[in-house]
Simulated scan of single mutants.
Amino acid sequence: MAKRLATEYVNARLQLSADDLDRFVRFVGGQNIRIRVRVVGCGNQEMALVDETNGEEVSMTFEQRDDRFVCELSCRLVHPKLTNALRRAVSAFRGDAVVNRIYSGFTMTYYYKRGAVHKIVEHTADGVRVVFERRDTVGELESLYVSRQVEREIERIQDAIDELLDLRNQCTSPSEKQAVDERLRQYTKQLFILEAE
């Protein structure tokens, strides 16, 4: 098995409520990582996560924005203890991140969205290969359902237009024809909008 040389967090982002921030501190501390917290101006908090076995450290700044604390982070880690703690935190607190796991001869890039891996890409000297990509099955089914709903609405409008055309052929006065023509214009406009979707 290949030995990981380093892990790079590129544009990792966590958005936490005040309660989540307290849970974050307890969560990371529960993984035998020492945390130093410092409150700075405007309620922002600076944290240093330290692996005391090897001295590796990562600094995180949580900026207070309205009722959330937002941390945007880029760092490079070498030792597994702090790397694993940060990976678990991104997952547990539904963070977004691009993570490069660097091995000798290749790099695996993990794309996290809301704490879950959505894509894994392998980079080698020979090129780039997508190893895994999460499909949005629920989203695909929802869009299929919506498209069928539009098709049913189109059919309903076409039936109403057919009935109005039959009614127009039976009209005896110009005012009756004009009223039917106005309704036909409205249905035609709706049909045009639905077919554009």
Rank of each mutant, 00 (worst) to 15 (best):
Arg135Tyr: 09
Thr172Tyr: 08
Glu56Asp: 03
Val78Phe: 08
Glu195Arg: 15
Arg152Asp: 11
Tyr110Phe: 13
Arg156Gly: 04
Ala6Ile: 04
Phe24Lys: 00
Arg129Gln: 11
Ile120Thr: 08
Thr83Lys: 04
Asn44Met: 10
Glu182Gly: 11
Glu182Leu: 14
Thr124Ser: 15
Ala89Phe: 01
Cys71Phe: 04
Glu153Ala: 15
Ile35Lys: 02
Lys119Leu: 05
Glu163Gln: 11
Thr109Arg: 09
Glu122Ala: 07
Ala18Gly: 07
Leu144Pro: 02
Ala125Lys: 14
Thr124Pro: 01
Glu140Thr: 08
Val25Trp: 02
Ile120Ser: 01
Gly29Met: 05
Leu191Asp: 02
Ala160Asn: 07
Arg34Asp: 11
Val28Thr: 06
Gln149Gly: 12
Arg134Cys: 06
Thr109Val: 12
Tyr110Gly: 01
Leu77Asn: 01
Gln15Ile: 13
Leu5His: 02
Leu144Ile: 11
Tyr145Gly: 09
Thr107Pro: 00
Val70Ser: 01
Glu72Lys: 12
Ala6Lys: 14
Ser74Ala: 10
Ala85Leu: 04
Glu8Ala: 09
Arg34Lys: 11
Lys177Gly: 07
Glu182His: 11
Val146Phe: 10
Asp126Arg: 13
Arg148Pro: 05
Val138Thr: 14
Leu141Ile: 13
Glu176Asn: 07
Arg185Lys: 15
Val180Ala: 07
Val10Pro: 03
Leu73Tyr: 03
Leu164His: 08
Phe24Trp: 08
Glu140Ala: 12
Tyr187Ala: 10
Ala125Cys: 03
Glu56Gln: 08
Asp162Gln: 10
Met60Leu: 15
Cys42Thr: 12
His79Pro: 01
Val25Cys: 03
Glu8Lys: 11
Phe132Gly: 01
Gln31Glu: 10
Leu73Ala: 03
Thr7Ser: 05
Asp19Ser: 09
Phe106Trp: 02
Val25Thr: 09
His79Phe: 14
Arg168Pro: 04
Val39Glu: 15
Ser147Gln: 15
Asp20Trp: 01
Gln45Pro: 02
Phe27Ala: 01
Asn32Trp: 06
Glu195Ala: 04
Leu191Arg: 00
Cys75Ser: 07
Gln170Gly: 04
Phe27Leu: 04
Gln186Tyr: 10
Val70Lys: 01
Ser143Trp: 08
Glu56Lys: 03
Leu21Thr: 02
Glu133Ser: 10
Leu5Met: 07
Lys3Ile: 13
Lys189Ala: 15
Val10Gly: 02
Val40Trp: 01
Glu72Phe: 07
Ser17Lys: 04
Leu167Met: 12
Leu191Ser: 03
Leu14Pro: 00
Asp126Ser: 13
Glu182Val: 10
Val138Leu: 15
Leu141Arg: 14
Thr83Val: 10
Asn169Val: 05
Ala2Lys: 12
Ser17Val: 05
Val10Trp: 06
Met60Phe: 03
Gln45Ser: 06
Arg156Leu: 14
Gly127Asp: 02
Ile157Glu: 03
Met47Arg: 02
Asp51Phe: 02
Lys119His: 02
Ala116Arg: 13
Ile120Lys: 06
Pro174Asn: 00
Arg4Cys: 07
Arg168Met: 08
Asp166Cys: 09
Arg26Leu: 08
Glu142Cys: 10
Ala12Lys: 00
Lys177Ile: 12
Leu184Lys: 05
Arg101Asn: 09
Ile33Asp: 00
Ala160Val: 07
Val70Leu: 11
Leu165Phe: 08
Phe192Ile: 04
Ser74Glu: 09
Asn32Gln: 12
